[in-house]
């Protein structure tokens, strides 16, 4: 079932980076994720490329197929259309940016096939 949108995507939410620095969610940059993952002993940043976007079972949901990491593992997630992903070099992006902005006041680009999103895996999995 689709994942409900958690509260930390609301504009103004305070996010703590791995080095302790605090930033607002709307001010996060690609480097913040990369540097935080470099500090982390457990988490690793992966590049996840959007391969397909299909409608979900719920009219407000979409099924996004990602190609994850160097191994290009195929992973599908079903999320609400307003769920934002962080695209490398671009920032927050969702399948329905108008709805994300309306609900969370978070400025978003349109998430498209070919976009490369920030995702996490466990270092121990490798």
């Amino acid at each position: 079932s689709p994942v409900a949108l958690p509260p930390f995507f609301m504009r103004g939410s305070i996010i703590q980076l791995a080095d302790g620095e605090l930033k607002r969610v709307e001010d996060l940059k690609t480097e913040d994720f990369i540097q935080s993952a470099e500090i982390s002993s457990e988490l690793k940043i992966d590049s996840s490329t959007v391969e397909r976007i299909d409608s979900g079972q719920n009219p407000n949901a979409v099924v996004i197929q990602f190609s994850v990491g160097e191994l290009k593992a195929q992973v599908c997630v079903e999320v609400l259309v307003e769920y934002p992903f962080f695209v490398f070099g671009q920032g927050w992006s969702s399948c329905c940016p108008d709805r994300t902005t309306q609900l969370f006041e978070l400025s978003c680009a349109k998430l498209c096939v070919g976009d490369v999103c920030v995702s996490l895996t466990l270092r121990s999995l490798r």
């Binding site: 958690p6 509260p7 930390f8 995507f9 939410s13 305070i14 996010i15 703590q16 980076l17 791995a18 605090l22 969610v25 996060l28 913040d32 994720f33 935080s36 982390s40 988490l43 940043i45 992966d46 996840s48 990602f66 994850v68 990491g69 191994l71 593992a73 195929q74 992973v75 997630v77 992903f85 962080f86 999103c117 920030v118 995702s119 996490l120 895996t121 466990l122 999995l125």
Partner: peptide
């Protein structure tokens, strides 16, 4: 004011062993 860890914002996309 609640403070959220950076990694809560990022989807955890773990490849499965099958497929």
């Amino acid at each position: 004011v609640p403070v959220f860890p950076w990694h809560s914002l990022v989807p955890f996309l773990a490849p499965t062993q099958s497929d």
